[in-house]
């Protein structure tokens, strides 16, 4: 079934793929978010990478957004893609935030400022940073492919008219 009236040219298989992607991304953010909360409140052995409980809650929110998109995508509703987009946007915000923090910390270390003497790169490689990359790597080619198909379909329709 073609749902080309929307932003993407999507078939049932496309919706199913997107739903699986949303579920996987949601589960990844959710598991690491919960883990980060548990470490933060001291229920799991401390790990310097994921010791911020509030940061964990933020990851859980990203997970909730992705998981909320699974149902509309399985129902072949174009708006399910919006959940993927918003998940990517807020996951991206957390990623950029951590990247900027990493960059400025590296600057402090490079300038040999006192508070940054003991800074190590590993300390800034948080789940928010690590999770976004694979999600981004999968979602961008998927987005490009679907937009390409949609443009092609629209052009064909234009020619037919």
């Amino acid at each position: 079934m073609d749902k080309s009236g929307g932003f993407y040219s999507s078939t049932s298989a496309d919706f199913k793929t997107a739903a699986i992607f949303a579920a996987l991304a949601g589960a990844s953010y959710g598991i690491l978010g919960v883990l980060q909360i548990l470490v933060g409140i001291g229920l799991v052995n401390p790990n310097s990478l994921i010791s911020d409980p509030l940061g964990g809650i933020m990851l859980v929110v990203v997970a909730l957004v992705y998981i909320s998109g699974v149902r509309p995508l399985l129902g072949e509703d174009q708006e399910g893609y919006a959940y993927l987009a918003v998940g990517a946007i807020i996951g991206g915000i957390l990623f950029v935030l951590q990247l900027v923090i990493l960059g400025t910390n590296a600057l402090g270390w490079w300038l040999q400022l006192e508070d940054w003497n003991e800074w190590i790169l590993l300390g800034d490689l948080t789940p928010a940073l690590l999770l976004f990359l694979p999600v981004f790597m999968v979602s961008i080619p998927m987005h490009k492919e679907k937009r390409g198909q949609k443009t092609k379909t629209d052009n064909e329709k234009g020619d037919a008219d």
């Binding site: 933020m58 929110v61 909730l64 807020i90 957390l94 900027v100 600057l107 402090g108």
Partner: peptide, 20 residues
């Protein structure tokens, strides 16, 4: 919750990125 994520990110950016 999304609003809170965005505002939390804003203040972490404000504090942590400006520290250096």
């Amino acid at each position: 919750p999304i609003f809170l994520v965005i505002i939390w990110s804003m203040f972490n950016f404000t504090f942590q990125a400006s520290a250096v």
